[in-house]
Amino acid sequence: MKKRLAGLALCVAIALVATGLGALVPVVGAPVFGIVIGAIIAAFLKPGAPTDAGAAWAGKYVLQASVVVFGTGLSIVQVLQTGWHSLPVMLGTLAIALLGAWLIGRALGLDGDVRTLIGVGTGICGASAIAATQSVIKAKSADVAYAIGTIFTFNVIAVVTFPFIGRALGMSDHSFGLWAGTAINDTSSVVAASFSFSAAAGAYGIVVKLTRTLMIIPITVALALYKRRQAVRADASAGVASAEDAAGAAAKTEPGRVAWNKVVPMFLIWFLVAVAVDSLGVFPQSWHPYLSQLGSFMITVALAGIGLGTRVGVLRQAGLRPLVLGASLWVLVALSSLGLQAVTHTL
């Protein structure tokens, strides 16, 4: 923790400034100010190694802890209702993202692993889905870098643009939370954009996003079975003596193994525990406003850390064709989410 203190302190300082600016300009909100200030400091002041560890820790673990804190203000009934109502839009946008990644990616001549990584990253939950998928398909590190760089680029754009678009369209808190939760890639960006719109949109967006995150499980299992089948066929065609030998050889093959600790994020489990505890009445109603404020500040601290971790080189590394695929999927998912909301009368 000693190595992280300088970075954490800088993130907290940025969050305090961002909170003040957010109060002055609520249409922008503290989380957006947090990530923008952090990115500006990273680009021009370049604090570097002394703050990197703390900023990275804040961007990951403080963000996850903030989601758990927000769980203390939700009941099981709210979570189940929100998750159930969001399913048609969520499943529709996921299908469009995966199909679009396959068709557009092939048209662009992108490698199959890059298409898969960008597709699941856009359709499910950004870097977390990419990490879970990579643990199954064993993609090359360069492919993972392209996918993460692409997803990160459109996360930043979404955080800044979505709240303004939502207000211009006159969206309600629930419709914006559903839009952000289904159309923005990474959890951090969903949290930042939805809470910049309103606290109610933020609470709704978190539940939608975490429901969407659960889609990692069936997708990674399906990919694991597909990779395992490919391995069996490859061994059989290479002259493996029997089906049993082929299956045994496939079990030893790296692609196709499911790393369950990467598929189910622990913070999602703790979020559900917090919801269950609040549903039992452990947290008094009088605590909820303070817990909400604490969660909002923690989000701003986390977004400051993500901003400090921004590197222009990562954006350049993504290259043109992955960025074209990412942009196409981002627009497709955003528009299809709005269209599905209109069809299901949730807009």
Rank of each mutant, 00 (worst) to 15 (best):
A199E: 14
F267N: 09
H174I: 13
N261S: 15
A203R: 12
K227I: 02
S172C: 10
N261R: 15
R4W: 02
V208Y: 00
V333A: 10
L272D: 01
F283N: 13
W330Y: 13
G309H: 03
I184K: 08
A247K: 08
A30V: 01
A183W: 03
A318T: 12
I219Y: 04
P50S: 15
L178K: 04
S189G: 04
S237G: 11
G20V: 09
L335E: 00
G29D: 09
L24C: 11
V282T: 11
T161I: 14
W287P: 09
D113K: 09
I76R: 10
M266F: 14
F70I: 01
S175F: 12
A247Q: 12
R228E: 07
V273D: 04
W84H: 11
L291A: 10
G181K: 02
T300R: 01
A139P: 06
F154P: 00
S337C: 10
V191F: 09
L117G: 00
G326N: 01
F297S: 08
M298S: 03
V301D: 08
H85S: 15
R257A: 11
Y290I: 02
F154I: 01
G38K: 01
S86E: 06
V69H: 07
D186S: 05
G92D: 05
A249E: 13
N261W: 14
I37P: 03
I269H: 06
R229P: 00
L178Y: 10
L338K: 04
L99I: 15
A147T: 06
L80N: 03
A302T: 02
G126S: 03
A56M: 05
L347G: 01
I299R: 05
V275D: 07
G109A: 04
L315P: 07
G281E: 11
T51G: 05
A231G: 04
D186E: 13
G121Y: 00
S328V: 04
A15D: 06
L63D: 01
K140L: 04
R4K: 15
Q317S: 12
W287R: 00
L272H: 08
A192K: 04
M171E: 09
V301T: 05
L108V: 07
T133W: 14
A236Y: 10
F267Y: 14
P26H: 09
L280S: 14
A97S: 12
I96H: 06
A247F: 08
A145K: 10
G166A: 12
A334C: 12
T153P: 02
L210Q: 13
R228H: 15
G181Y: 00
G339H: 09
V12A: 14
